[in-house]
Design a protein around this nucleic acid. Structure first.
Lengths: 335, 335
DNA sequence: ATTCATTTTGTTAACGTGTGCATAAATTTA
DNA sequence: TAAATTTATGCACACGTTAACAAAATGAAT
């Protein structure tokens, strides 16, 4: 049914080698024959068989986009933004393959023959095993989102630490003294970075964050809700809360509302990520913008580059965050 | 470097044919030799070359998950829920390939050799061309989300019409008389279905929806915001608004809030989808739950089935929606 | 015209796997 | 024990493509 180069060869009265060369625009072939062959190829609606190509060329035309997990711990907006970013760059000449690392029991099926390159949206230290495997296989790699110095791959991250520092400073400047933090999933690098930046800002101002003002969340809306509930039921609740992502900030605002607290009058809330909905919460969420889509688009560009040149030197790229000042955080009202 | 069946054959002192059969568990091979070969294969860490396999077996081990568009018109939560659903079912023996139809200029690269099966999360009539192409190629197909009777494929949809009818009825029961609708993207089947169900409910109660109470949105939060703004600035604004998805409902509530209207006291809002955030808006969003993740998981199961048995009869599956009664819609306050 | 260099095309093998057919080995039957 | 049957293995080719090398065709130079 489907035409092959041999069919074309027969029609054009040449060898299939000539056809192959012509279609790949080899300089060895005369212009006229090239044109003739191209013409016939179009007529018979020729489509190259990528399996055959891959087999002989040892390339898969496949780019793997991996997440730490697809089912848990990855918020929808983050997930979607990442795929959008990558998709916008990777041409249809490539297969775009999406999976979670936790879908795999072992990594034996992840090897060079199957992936020309891999983009990892990394969220947890547990990914290191995967990274090592990929490097061992000599597959070009781009790791997004998690800072891992010293590896032989491209590493693109947003400066979460600086971003949360800015958020912390902002709350201090607004006159808050009792400031709490709702943290992300334990073990995630982002959790640590955001906590560190936030604490630095607070401590730099000479204040401290007591233990009961540090609540562990897990990046889900529900965990933000629970955490805020816990905070507001303390004897002396905080007047401002920094949430390690927007999902939790939305849950937190919801809890405040449910307990009769007003945001920002009674308690200020600040988030992290700047997801689409942040602009539309009531009040609109003040948050730290993280350029997820840029990061992933940039990652896609880099992986294409690496596939071409087959380099494996280290490359570290920082993208800056930005404080989006909206209405959920305000100056402390005199108490 | 990587071991092939020929390497194993050499080590086992048999032909590569025997190895191939042994690894595929053919009944032709003696148990002892089978075991010996398996053993060696494990030792040398053998991984089959899928390109070679695909080439000879004419199967790609790839499932394509297509959206109408990845960049526009698909909300993050919808997108993520779909991928999660599919991913939870498709084993790692398959490649999961994600793309938007609008990424393609022509569909020549979409053919049987490259896809064992295709799942289409369809949102627009414009997808029909794609569907036809896939059927022409004889690729097993599952179409989700959009009702297309009479095709030779599996069609899985939620009963949006009944869902919106229920939403409409609910508002009527709450005593509302001036009820508006914010519609989705023009041309999307879901837009039509939800509009139709809603209007049916209203008209069944003997009331009508004037033209100025029917605003076109495009499923984005921002469009919901704009639409609500427009509605509330009418001389006689509605007391209840049905939004064709949750994203727009969130935008709508935000607009109400911005204009000093209270939800649900001044205006009731009801959404569609039941995204994660719906529970956490203030007030929590009353909405129609649509089982996106189930739909896509079910779709994945069906496509695997179809790939095995290579059937192409029509199959139509409805999944029911459910009204989630929360706080954003209430009885009409006496005016 | 003959040789040499250059350009264009063809021959053949290779990539790693599966399978129809032939053959060898083991087992049963006569 | 020989023949017939069954069971286990190997040979050779196929899938569709690229590429090293060989060969033919063309053109230039003597």
């Amino acid at each position: 049914m489907a035409a092959t180069i041999k069919d074309i060869a027969r029609l054009a009265n040449v060898s299939h080698t000539t056809v192959s060369r012509a279609l790949n625009n080899s300089p060895l072939i005369k212009e006229v024959t090239k044109r003739k062959i191209m013409e016939i190829a179009r007529e018979v609606n020729y489509i190259p068989n990528y399996n055959a190509k891959s087999l002989v060329l040892q390339r898969s035309h496949t780019i793997g986009l991996f997440f730490t997990s697809i089912s848990t711990g990855t918020s929808s907006s983050f997930f979607a933004a990442t795929i959008r970013g990558v998709n916008s760059v990777v041409g249809i000449g490539y297969n775009l393959f999406v999976r979670g690392i936790d879908d795999y029991e072992d990594f034996s099926t992840i090897h060079r023959k199957r992936f020309d390159g891999i983009i990892l949206m990394s969220q947890s230290d547990a990914d290191n095993e995967f990274i090592e495997h990929v490097l061992e296989q000599n597959i070009p790699l781009v790791v997004l989102n998690r800072l891992i110095p010293g590896g032989h791959f491209v590493n693109i991250v947003s400066n979460d630490r600086e971003g949360s520092r800015e958020a912390g400073r902002y709350l201090i400047e607004q006159g808050h003294e009792r400031i709490a933090i709702i943290e992300g999933i334990k073990g995630f690098k982002s959790t640590e970075q955001r906590r560190a930046g936030f604490l630095e800002a607070i401590e730099q101002s000479g204040k401290t964050v007591p233990q009961e003002y540090r609540i562990a969340g897990d990046y889900t809306t529900e965990s933000g809700h629970q955490a805020m509930r816990q905070l507001l039921q303390l004897q002396t609740p905080p007047t401002a809360v920094f949430c390690s992502n927007d999902d939790m900030a939305i849950g937190a605002m919801n809890a405040a509302y449910a307990l009769g607290y007003k945001v920002p009058e009674d308690v200020s809330v600040i988030g992290f990520d700047d997801i689409n909905f942040a602009r539309y919460t009531n009040p609109a969420l003040t948050t730290v913008k993280r350029p997820v889509e840029q990061i992933s688009a940039h990652g896609a560009e880099k992986i294409m580059e690496r596939i071409e040149e087959d380099a494996n030197r280290e490359e570290l790229i920082f993208l800056e965050t930005a404080l989006m000042e909206r209405q959920s955080a305000a100056a402390r009202s005199g108490s």
